[in-house]
Nucleic acid binder design. Structure first.
Lengths: 106, 106
DNA sequence: TTCTTATTTAGCTAAATTGCCAAATAATCA
DNA sequence: TGATTATTTGGCAATTTAGCTAAATAAGAA
């Protein structure tokens, strides 16, 4: 595998890594319904505001969301709705896994 | 966020995490063209066989691939081709990011 | 059986990730 | 101006991940 190819896979992995956390998945899904400020997301997630802010900056650095300041609040917006299609595939994997588990039990 | 919802997001994140590594992304894409044994993948990736084996076990534990022994070799197979659709979305994100970078420069 | 090849597992270290607290920054309000 | 609210950043400890070497396991060949 040459260096250019390797770099491309690393860039892809970087973006997927940004999605690979429960809170960040929640944020992406919530933002698919509309813009939300940090305080709203913090309330819903139930973690420290600084923690949520860091999750948001990871998503922003990966180019998945954008932010916009309104008064003292910062509103985040989903830039890439195509990600949502992927969640369906992930659900299918989870369903298959559950079925396989059941087979093992019975 | 109640516990059940949290558990669901964690399960999703677990699967996405399995994809969040350049070598594992390569493996998934390579397996989309057909079954491959560990030695073939090891050769292509250029890492230690034990490392590749561990990557494969991560993919298998997440339910993304399956394995089958043939002689002394173990062949892996992609179980979830729907993942490939997602890669197109990731490419789009990368393209948008590149364009944004160019705008900043000019 | 002994040797060889393919694969997995164990053990280790280095690096990355996570989440909290505390402090810094920014905008608004009294 | 001083106080308040929203957000981000720095710093730290705990946990997880990655990839190597060495050793264990498994199947086939001599």
């Amino acid at each position: 595998m040459d260096n250019k190819t390797k770099a491309r896979y690393e860039a892809r992995a970087q973006i997927i890594k940004a999605l690979a956390h429960p809170s960040r998945l929640f944020i992406v899904e919530e933002l698919s319904h509309g813009k939300r400020c940090v305080c709203e997301l913090t309330e819903m997630i139930g973690a420290d505001a600084s923690t949520v802010s860091k999750h948001l900056s990871i998503l922003k650095n990966s180019g998945l969301v954008n932010d916009e300041k309104v008064g003292t609040s910062v509103y985040y917006e989903l830039l890439t709705p195509c990600i949502l299609n992927f969640f369906g595939c992930v659900e299918n994997v989870m369903k298959s896994n559950a079925e396989r588990h059941l087979e093992l039990i019975n």
